[in-house]
């Protein structure tokens, strides 16, 4: 299908931003001017270079411990994207397999899995994260676990819906006639036919994961300090909102731009690649 001009601009802009972010995340050690975890206390709370009192040494200023904000921002990109990729891979695989199983097998398996999605869908994520952090302590693993527990639901629901449609196709019946096992039918026939929708969904979810991840880190139950992370950077700047606004603003802007890019790209892709998957929003 042909993309309209504005859609093209959106897709290209979104893609460029995402590519830049990916490059930043991968080459963070080469790009970042300073070590993100080590600060110079004598240099603390320096404003960005365009502000009075700022200097070229720290383009985006320094935080309360004298760490370079730009370097932390760069490494924070790495954290956010890594979490997003791992969580989506885990949740995507588990959710899709559960959804396909539910849709293809039907019966009580379907009932149980769908009840689980209902439960997980309306479960208070942040509370779950708090409890897990309480038990396990804040950690990288903890975030991945919590986010995966939330994310799998959408994959499961979508994969189930698609599997229900595909189950009725003649090629599935013919696969059975050929003697294929149920597992082979799910993996070789249903999964490949659901895959494109799943991939679009994954794009749509990156933004959501970044929001979740930064919220967890903001509350102190995500990436443990001193590792750099956008959410905890915002949190760290909170008490200095009167005097050093940039501490919260800089990572905040980074979050919004990143999430927006992924959402716009995902929405546009959905619209054109797989309109049936369009979220109820329709835009």
């Amino acid at each position: 299908m042909q993309l309209s001009l504005s859609a093209k601009i959106i897709v290209v802009t979104g893609l460029v931003i995402i590519l830049v972010l990916a490059v930043i995340a991968i080459f963070a050690p080469l790009i970042a001017p300073y070590d993100p975890t080590i600060g110079e206390l004598s240099e603390r709370l320096k404003p960005p270079c365009w502000q009075e009192g700022g200097s070229r040494d720290h383009i985006l200023g320094t935080d309360t411990l004298g760490r370079d904000v730009l370097s932390r921002l760069i490494y924070g990109t790495r954290t956010s994207l890594t979490v997003a990729v791992i969580a989506i891979l885990i949740a995507g695989s588990i959710g899709s397999l559960l959804g396909i199983t539910a849709g293809y097998l039907g019966g009580w398996v379907d009932t149980v899995i769908m009840r689980l999605t209902d439960l997980a869908f309306s479960f208070p994520t942040i509370l779950l994260a708090l409890v897990l952090a309480f038990v396990l302590g804040p950690s990288f693993f903890n975030i991945i676990l919590v986010i995966s527990l939330v994310l799998w639901v959408e994959y499961a629901r979508m994969a189930r819906g698609e599997a229900l449609k595909i189950r009725g196709m003649d090629y599935v019946a013919l696969a059975q006639v050929a003697g294929c096992s149920k597992i082979r039918i799910m993996l070789r026939h249903i999964l490949p036919n659901v895959a494109s929708s799943l991939i679009v969904l994954a794009t749509l979810q990156v933004g959501m994961v970044i929001v979740l991840e930064s919220s967890l880190s903001f509350l102190g139950v995500g990436v443990p300090p001193p590792d750099p992370d956008w959410g905890s950077m915002v949190a760290g700047g909170r008490s200095y909102i009167f005097s050093a606004w940039w501490l919260s603003a800089v990572p905040g802007v980074a979050i919004v731009i990143t999430v927006l890019s992924f959402n716009l790209l995902g929405d546009t892709l959905t619209e054109y690649i797989n309109p049936s998957l369009r979220r109820q929003g329709g835009w």
Binding site: G207, I255, V256, V259, L260, L264, W283
Partner: peptide, 26 residues
Amino acid sequence: ARVLALLGQATPVFLLAIMGMYIFSV
């Protein structure tokens, strides 16, 4: 409305809170 909805989705609640605080309180 679309732009607002998109922005609303892209802004985490905690960021919104802090922005609100900065603008309306500070």
